[in-house]
Each structure stands twice: as structure tokens, then as C-alpha cells.
Computed example of a mutant assay.
Amino acid sequence: MKKVFSNQYFLLIIRIIIAMVFIYAGAEKISDPKGFSQSIYNYRILPIETINILAITLPWLELISGILLLFGISVKENAAIIGTLLLVFIIAVALSMIRGLDIDCGCFGKGNMVGWRKIGENSLMLIICVVLMAFDSKIILLNDRKTD
């Protein structure tokens, strides 16, 4: 198993997948801050005073971490940031399910409801982030050749 996880091409592929998911998710939320703010409010977890600032900052964190991850910049650190976000998302979805809320998760626009499927998706992405933190990904997508 360690041989698979230490394969640089495997790590590159999973890194690109996670990066693209978070780039897309961040961009989607940035394009509709009011809708994302409503999605956060629907969870009924945070004080109302914090919702707007979170609705503005969280998507940019997702987008920037995704872009940096895509280009192989500080892979372990950005995988840790995204992994932490995923853990928070898993907890928020689980709490909503326990409380019986039938709400949109706020992940990729409208129509993604909280539930076991969302917990499974986020858990899989969290595992991928842990793999990236443990094994890193040395392949970078930037051309860093030096010219003399």
C-alpha cells in the first residue's frame, strides 16, 4: 500500500482532483455570496454575526488553497488547510442530520442536500488530504527552469 501512496503520479492525480474540486467550489461560492450566506445560516450552528464574514472569506480560502495545491506549492500545508475544512464540513453535515435538518449543504450551488452521501464524499476527500500530507507530491506544475 505504501508503494501506491508514494507513487508521484498517483499523488499528482489525487492532488489535481482535490485542487479542482476546491477551486470549483470556491469559485461557485464567490459568485453567489448571498446564497452561500443563506446556506451557512441554514445549518443553525454559528452566531448570525459571523455568517457574512464567513460567507465572504471561506470561498476565497478554498479557491486559493486549491490553486496552490494544483500548482504544487506548499502541498502539505494546503492539504492540511483543505483537510481541516473538510473535517469541519463533515461535522456540520453530521450535526444537521442528527438535528433532522433537511437543508442544502452549500457545497456546489443548489441541490446538494446534507446526508450520508455528502459525509462519504467529504470523508474520501479528507483521506486524500491525509495521504497528501503524509507522502507529499514532489511533481509541480510550474515551469521552474532557470535561464542563464
Rank of each mutant, 00 (worst) to 15 (best):
M1C: 08
K3W: 02
K3G: 04
V4S: 08
F5R: 00
S6F: 03
S6A: 08
N7V: 06
N7G: 04
Q8R: 14
Q8V: 05
Q8G: 04
Q8E: 14
Y9W: 13
L11K: 04
L12W: 01
L12S: 07
I13E: 06
I14D: 01
R15G: 01
I18Q: 00
M20V: 15
V21K: 00
V21L: 06
F22D: 00
F22Q: 02
I23S: 02
Y24Q: 07
A25Q: 09
G26N: 06
G26C: 09
E28A: 12
K29Q: 09
K29S: 05
S31F: 11
S31Q: 09
S31M: 15
S37G: 13
I40S: 01
I40T: 03
Y43C: 11
Y43K: 12
R44F: 09
L46R: 09
P47K: 12
P47G: 10
P47D: 10
P47R: 14
I48F: 06
E49K: 12
A55M: 10
A55H: 02
L58E: 08
L58G: 04
L58W: 02
P59F: 05
W60A: 11
L61V: 15
E62Q: 15
G66C: 08
I67G: 02
L68M: 10
L68N: 04
L70C: 07
S74N: 15
V75C: 06
V75M: 05
A79P: 01
A80Y: 05
A80F: 12
I82L: 15
G83T: 07
T84I: 13
L85W: 00
L86E: 05
L87P: 00
F89C: 04
F89R: 05
I90F: 07
I91T: 13
A92K: 08
L95Q: 10
L95D: 09
S96Q: 06
I98Q: 11
I98S: 08
R99L: 10
L101F: 09
I103F: 03
I103V: 12
D104H: 04
D104V: 08
C105T: 07
C105Y: 01
C105V: 09
G106I: 04
G106M: 05
G106D: 05
C107M: 08
F108I: 11
F108V: 11
F108C: 09
K110R: 15
N112W: 10
N112R: 15
V114D: 03
R117Y: 11
I119V: 15
I119C: 03
G120K: 07
N122G: 03
S123Y: 03
M125Y: 14
M125K: 05
M125N: 06
L126F: 14
L126Q: 02
I127L: 14
L132Q: 02
L132C: 04
F135P: 01
F135Y: 14
D136Q: 11
K138S: 12
K138E: 14
K138V: 07
I139Y: 01
I139C: 03
I140N: 10
L141E: 07
L141N: 09
L142D: 10
N143T: 08
D144Y: 06
